[in-house]
Simulated scan of single mutants.
Amino acid sequence: MERSRIAVAGASGLIGSALVRSLAADGHEVVRLVRRTPRGPDEVRWDPARQHVDASGLAGCDVVVNLAGAGVGDRRWTPEYKRLIRDSRVLGTAALAEAVVSLPRPPRVFLNGSAIGFYGETGDRVVDEGAPPGDGFLPGLCVEWEEAAAPVEEAGVRTVFLRTGLVVARGGGAWGRLFPLFRAGLGGRLGDGRQYWSYIALHDEVAAIRHLMDGEELAGPFNLTAPQPLTNREITAAMGRELHRPTAFAVPAPVLRAALGELAGDVLGSQRVVPKRLLESGFRFAFPGIDEAIRAAE
């Protein structure tokens, strides 16, 4: 892709910060959306809760990437925090969509965050982008999140939904919590360990986003997960192998439910999601296997 002006919401998060570094390293002009007073021309003020974006700061952007949202696993799911999780995504996306369609020259592509939580509990069943949404809080959230970008699609801007799985990285997300536990010898399976986890190395997550950014014919939902989901038991064994630590500990399901509340359903749930459309588009993973994904995160 030629040097472009690219706006990123959620630029300080795990994925956003890695994406910004990658884009800047290749000479792209990156504009970060911030909630405070901008400190320079590379920042744009926005307030997703109030659905406000300084649209003038998006002028001239070829690409807008929305990765903003409160962390799903950061706190126990109280009614108040569930509202924050929803509003930070749905209201933020709606605000960005309104700003994008108001521009005299809209960007050529809008990439909006989403998650494999869209599919809900899938058990042993393999699902791709053609599967319908599941039931529950996360599937409902993902549906609203994607629907909030409808004005951009209707305006004729190519729109991509990034249905991301569990990102293997040290700096945040679920794996950011797993690494210290396993290094301390406290790692182990969660529940019975039979639930499928659909993961992706952070390097591949960023590469996939950039691949979708560049592909002029690529639109709609794409699963950003490694080609072969594994069970929690298999991933636990891999963490032990790669970090050279025992994995004898196991956290029983009742303990997880007591500690995490409703969030435990997401931890214990099974999602066997595959990136069918991403592979069909020609994307090639650098770290498709769990062992190499863990090593890449080291």
Rank of each mutant, 00 (worst) to 15 (best):
I294M: 09
L67T: 08
P180D: 12
G261S: 06
R210F: 08
V143W: 02
R3F: 03
G130V: 06
E262G: 07
R241E: 06
R272E: 11
H203Q: 09
A9W: 01
R233L: 11
D291C: 03
A208P: 02
L141I: 03
G40M: 09
A68S: 15
E153F: 01
F161K: 07
V30S: 09
R50Y: 10
P132C: 10
E154I: 03
E43F: 00
L84P: 07
G92V: 03
E217I: 04
L202E: 02
D291P: 01
P252Q: 13
A264W: 01
G136Y: 03
P288G: 08
I235Q: 10
L91V: 08
R5P: 00
N112R: 08
A237I: 08
G69Y: 02
A237Y: 06
K276L: 09
E262S: 07
A207S: 10
P139F: 15
H52W: 15
V100E: 02
A55L: 11
R89F: 02
R83S: 12
V152P: 00
V20Q: 02
E292K: 07
I235V: 15
E98W: 03
V274N: 09
L67N: 13
A18Y: 01
C142T: 00
R257W: 02
L67E: 14
P132G: 14
A155T: 06
D74I: 01
P79D: 09
E146G: 01
D42E: 15
A55N: 12
T225S: 11
L260F: 08
A208G: 05
A25S: 12
A95Q: 01
V64N: 10
W175Q: 08
A226W: 00
D192I: 03
W46T: 00
A150Q: 10
F222Y: 15
A208E: 05
V251L: 15
L243N: 07
Q271F: 10
R245E: 12
R45P: 04
W77S: 13
D74A: 15
G185I: 13
R183V: 06
D74R: 10
A208D: 06
D124R: 11
L181R: 07
G220E: 13
R177Y: 11
R32M: 10
R241T: 07
R50D: 15
A7H: 01
G165F: 05
R36F: 03
E43Y: 05
L103T: 00
R3Y: 05
F285C: 09
W197V: 07
P106Y: 04
R284Q: 13
R163F: 11
S12F: 00
G220R: 06
G240P: 00
D62V: 07
T159D: 04
N66T: 11
A59W: 10
G117Y: 01
R3Q: 11
A253D: 11
H211E: 05
G60A: 14
E146S: 03
L33N: 11
F137A: 12
G220Q: 10
F222R: 13
V127S: 04
S17I: 05
G60N: 15
V152K: 01
L263G: 04
